[in-house]
């Protein structure tokens, strides 16, 4: 039998060895996970940081050691900072961002949809949005304070303005991406204009709107420190600014780490929401 197998190379020579699965050669980075590389990079950065700071090459005022940062984090967790616990600081920031996000979504989505459906709405809203959207929030922060005072209102207004534009713009992009065949199909099934909007346009635009919200949350975290510059007594942004005034670099590091963790958690949450709300994304 052996010579038959040898004469016919397509027969498996050895039942144990699984066949080598192949696929078309791709372009770019392929499908293999980059997670181990990313984790290793993170570890290398921490190791380098640790080596540089522990060796005393740089003053601790400029670069605290990982151990100092860790103990600052423990102090912050146990004792709080400036008459407020760590959770009070974090929840103050979270409350501002989430409130601003809720307002920005509630205003930005319908306005974005209207702008893509009505020539008048597009014309009216285009001017102010295109004018203010590229401005850095720090530039109009003084106006917010002068107009709205130094309370919560001006902080949330600043965050809302920063988050509104990406949501409104992505809602418009979402409507533009609705295929005309899908619209015509619905109209020939007897859809009214309102039914068309609710059953076809809105769900079709949903993936883009969610992407816009994700971008807006990123912008929101970016604006948070600026918002909490204004006479805040609580908040992670305030915590960082206040610590920097005392040159408490280790506490600044802790604040940055907390913001990074929160932003990362938001990003994961948005991805889960996307998977739940638009399971068809990329499949049709």
């Amino acid at each position: 039998m052996t010579h038959v197998a040898a004469a016919n190379p397509s027969l498996p020579q050895d039942a144990e060895a699984p066949p080598r699965a192949v696929k078309i050669r791709g372009f770019g980075i392929g499908e293999r996970s980059t997670l181990p590389i990313s984790v290793a990079t993170g570890l290398v950065i921490i190791a380098a940081w640790s080596a540089v700071s522990e060796a005393g090459l740089v003053s601790h005022l400029f670069l605290p050691t990982p151990r100092e940062v860790a103990s600052a984090a423990v102090t912050f967790y146990q004792d709080g900072y400036a008459n407020a616990s760590m959770w009070e600081h974090i929840s103050a920031s979270l409350a501002r961002i989430l409130t601003a996000a809720a307002i920005a979504v509630a205003l930005g989505t319908p306005i974005g949809l209207l702008m893509s459906l009505s020539r008048w709405m597009k014309g009216v809203f285009d001017t102010p949005i295109e004018f203010y959207w590229p401005l850095p929030p720090l530039a109009y922060l003084p106006l917010m304070i002068i107009w709205l005072g130094i309370g919560e209102v001006s902080k949330i207004a600043l965050l809302t303005m920063a988050m509104f534009a990406p949501i409104a713009l992505s809602a418009q992009a979402g409507v533009r991406s609705v295929s005309i065949e899908r619209v015509n199909a619905a109209l020939s099934l007897g859809a009214t204009r309102f039914q068309l909007l609710r059953e076809i346009v809105l769900p079709s635009a949903l993936p883009e709107i969610l992407t816009g919200i994700r971008i807006a949350l990123g912008v929101g975290w970016g604006t948070l420190v600026a918002a909490e510059l204004i006479a805040a007594t609580r908040g992670i942004g305030h915590f960082i600014m206040s610590a920097s005034q005392f040159l408490a670099t280790d506490f600044v590091f802790v604040g940055i780490g907390i913001i990074a963790l929160c932003a990362f958690a938001f990003s994961i949450a948005m991805r889960l929401i996307e998977r739940w709300l638009v399971p068809w994304k990329g499949k049709s």
Partner: peptide, 16 residues
């Protein structure tokens, strides 16, 4: 367009 004229398209237009 109206529901008394049903249309079947070449590209499928089902809602995912």
């Amino acid at each position: 367009p109206g529901s008394e004229r049903g249309v079947v398209f070449q590209k499928d237009t089902l809602l995912p």
